[in-house]
């Protein structure tokens, strides 16, 4: 197979996902097939071909360095699953 179970587990960890055994097996198979298919790209000689990362012709978009209104603390916290005293609450980080 193109991708091993251990690789799936490793990549899932990088992406902060936890997959159960069944899903790991399924993904091994499906992602493997997809990567095999992606390998058809190797049929093309891309020596000296530049990379395209976006399709717009613009380069850097600058704006005037002026203050503009933003959403503010209350609105910024409006959808937070946990909040207190104007802060987001997360599990204890430093033991």
């Amino acid at each position: 197979m193109k991708i091993t179970k251990d690789e799936i587990i490793h990549v899932a960890n990088l992406a902060r996902l936890e997959l159960n055994e069944d899903v790991i097996d399924k993904f091994c198979n499906q992602v493997g097939q997809i990567l095999d298919y992606v390998d058809t790209l190797n049929q093309i000689d891309t020596k000296n071909v530049s990379l395209t990362s976006h399709a717009s012709s613009s380069t850097n978009a600058f704006r005037e360095d002026i203050e503009i209104e933003s959403i503010g603390m209350e609105q910024g916290l409006a959808n937070a699953p946990g909040k207190e005293d104007g802060c987001f609450i997360v599990p204890k980080v430093i033991g």
Partner: peptide, 23 residues
Amino acid sequence: GVKYGFRADHPGSLIDMYKNTRS
């Protein structure tokens, strides 16, 4: 699971909370 949207129950560390939430 911090700024908006769903947060899963998070027994344990911050990383566990991320993983549970996203999974």
